[in-house]
Design a protein around this nucleic acid. Sequence first.
DNA 1: TTCACTGCAAACCTTTTGCAATTCT
DNA 2: AGAATTGCAAAAGGTTTGCAGTGAA
Lengths: 165, 165
Amino acid sequence: MSPISRQPNKQDTHADFSYTEQALHTLKHAGLRITKPRKVVIDLLDNSPVPLSAYEIKEKIDSLGEKIDTVSVYRIIETLEKHHLIHRLLSSSKVQKCRLSPESSCDKHQSDHCHHLLVCSECHTVSEVHCPGANDLVQAVQQAAHFQITSHAIEFYGVCGSCSG
Amino acid sequence: MSPISRQPNKQDTHADFSYTEQALHTLKHAGLRITKPRKVVIDLLDNSPVPLSAYEIKEKIDSLGEKIDTVSVYRIIETLEKHHLIHRLLSSSKVQKCRLSPESSCDKHQSDHCHHLLVCSECHTVSEVHCPGANDLVQAVQQAAHFQITSHAIEFYGVCGSCSG
DNA sequence: TTCACTGCAAACCTTTTGCAATTCT
DNA sequence: AGAATTGCAAAAGGTTTGCAGTGAA
């Protein structure tokens, strides 16, 4: 059950609430404290169209005159990731706010929230998709190789609608 | 003689030639020079069952009394990757020799040699598979999102046959 | 001999740990 | 006040650049 009530037909996005509101609510609901550094990081991620590294987050916040320690950024990122509020790109280990709701995992059998990433080579923005057929792929690979698959990561690279249109 | 004992892997798809032979041939064919550092790195990768980071490669070679600069390792890795002789793991950015032939790409339409990785959580060895159905997945995602996919990366995590049996 | 390649220097980014100080509730 | 969280110190690994010297062809 989601901590936030949703319209029945808006299953895929957090459209009812801003990302910042959603994130703060999720943290509070988990018994975590709403601190200034956390708010600043969440706000920055909410407004960044591209994924950021821990160091880049620190730099951006510093340049805004806010000052934050790199270690704190790492720990905040860790917390946000644990609560499925951000994605980590495999190809760069940068992070970005998660735009799909936790319930929209491709695999209902795994607790992992499993969204797959579309990385645009032009503008470097990253969007998320469900992975229709990903379970079939997992099954096929599992059969072909003697390998028991517990999780998987998929990233697609190409050109997004805005950049190609 | 090489300081590293050679154990040609007969499970290779490059069955006629050892990985080392194949790699050296590929480099020579591309007009590149066969240098001592390159031979040592290739030999090390040929005999490593697990992926290695650039730093780990440097450490291993040094411990064999050969000495190599970290920067050289990076550049050699870059060269090998360009010629499809190694894979880079997304999840750790370590590299491993490529065991499947370049022709066995999952997607005949892309020049990319596209193999998908099976990472064992137990022994950390990485094997490669063709991706039956991956093209279907790419098509499905491309349709669902407004996104023109040019390449993709897939990693599966789980337990390999040796570790589960 | 030539120039592709390596080694060296140097700088910066990445990540983790322990402990003291701070601050949210 | 008490507990969660941040800042600081420090260390080690990871990555990149330019330049000078070496060595493969």
